[in-house]
């Protein structure tokens, strides 16, 4: 099995789906020349400009046009160049894509994928670094994926493209070339809504996703080696629908829960996980459900000194593990 980066896995998933199904098209800004992160490199050569094309620089139209095209038989993948730029399209995503099936009593459906690189740690400043997932995970009718693992990304993106409902697919841009994994060449699909237990452990349940799940795995290894603490690491992968059973089963086993995410702490996605555990697994807890997240300032400042000061990473996760284990 070949070792691949996240961006290679994303590209491969789209290309395979475009070969498999002529209804799949890709559009967005700069996609014809391969995209700023090279996700669509070679697509124009292989699929032509009818199936991979540049749009005017207008995020609401990119998503709104994708919705319309999906109503008329296509399976569009709309690329938003950076998740930070998705806000003008929120009306289309929340008021339209998420609701058209429900509000038409099932008559219409909206099989689109909105892909966007998200996350900090690339010295991208406050407008190339945001985590935007919690806004969309809040909305019934949407499906939301956050990935940093190449293996997960390929299988989940293929599932997202084949899914009959709108999927927000957030790829952690720091992981694009940093995270490498074995990725099968063949066609495999990972179901949306299924978390992965990436490491088993009996002492603490660490719930995470995206790049923080990568930090969590490294911190968990060190906690085992240096402190003898066995951390079970759950990578949620899909934020909505949430695989609450995997989370709860683990907490019932370990009795301690740490939720780690890169977004701002206040009102972040991890708050939902903390509430779920508190409501459904209270009797099993022998420590406070703990959150580790970025402080409540815009993510991320451009200066490395400032970004490093606010962005949670492996060291912060390890500290949080130790604090919770000592409780």
């Amino acid at each position: 099995m070949a070792v691949k980066t996240l961006i290679e896995a994303v590209r491969e998933a789209m290309a395979e789906e475009m070969r498999r199904d002529p209804r799949v098209i890709v559009f967005g800004e700069d996609v014809e020349e391969g995209g700023v992160f090279r996700a669509t490199e070679g697509f124009v050569q292989e699929f032509g400009r009818e199936r991979c094309f540049d749009t005017p620089l207008a995020e609401s139209a990119i998503v709104g046009v994708a919705i319309g095209a999906s109503l008329n038989g296509l399976l569009p993948i709309a690329e938003i160049q950076f998740a930070d730029f998705i806000w003008p399209a929120v009306d289309q995503i929340i008021n339209e894509a998420a609701r058209i099936r429900w509000r038409s009593n099932g008559a219409w459906g909206c099989p689109i994928v909105v892909r966007a690189p998200y996350g900090a740690g690339i010295r991208g400043g406050p407008y190339h670094s945001q985590s935007v997932e919690s806004v969309f995970a809040h909305v019934p009718g949407l499906k939301v994926v956050c990935v940093a693992s190449p293996y997960d990304a390929k299988g989940l993106l293929k599932a997202a493209i084949r899914d009959p409902d709108p999927v927000l697919f957030f790829e952690h841009k720091r992981a694009y070339r940093l995270v490498r994994e074995e990725v099968p060449e063949d066609d495999y699909v990972l179901p949306l809504g299924q978390a992965a237990v990436k490491r088993e452990g009996k002492d603490i349940t660490l719930v995470s996703y995206g790049m923080m799940a990568q930090h969590a795995l490294k911190a968990a290894e060190r906690a085992a080696e240096e402190d003898g603490i066995q951390v079970e690491v759950i990578d949620l992968r899909t934020l909505r629908p949430l695989d609450s059973e995997t989370v709860l089963a683990s907490v019932r086993k370990t009795g301690k829960a740490l939720v780690a995410y890169e977004d701002n702490l206040f009102g972040g996605y991890g708050a939902e996980i903390a509430a779920l555990i508190a409501e459904e697994a209270f009797d099993y807890l022998d420590g406070p459900v703990t959150r580790l997240a970025a402080p409540d300032v815009p993510i991320s400042p451009f200066s490395p000194a400032l970004e490093d000061a606010i962005l949670p990473g492996e060291e912060n996760v390890l500290e949080a593990i130790r604090r919770l284990a000592a409780y």
């Binding site: 098209i25 009818e50 199936r51 609401s60 139209a61 998503v63 709104g64 046009v65 994708a66 919705i67 319309g68 095209a69 999906s70 109503l71 008329n72 038989g73 296509l74 569009p76 009306d91 289309q92 008021n95 339209e96």
Partner: peptide
């Protein structure tokens, strides 16, 4: 006006197909 881009997307699909 949220419906206006939908119409354009539908027309895009008509043309591509």
């Amino acid at each position: 006006a949220t419906q206006v881009p939908h119409a354009v997307g539908i027309a895009l699909a008509s043309k591509l197909r």
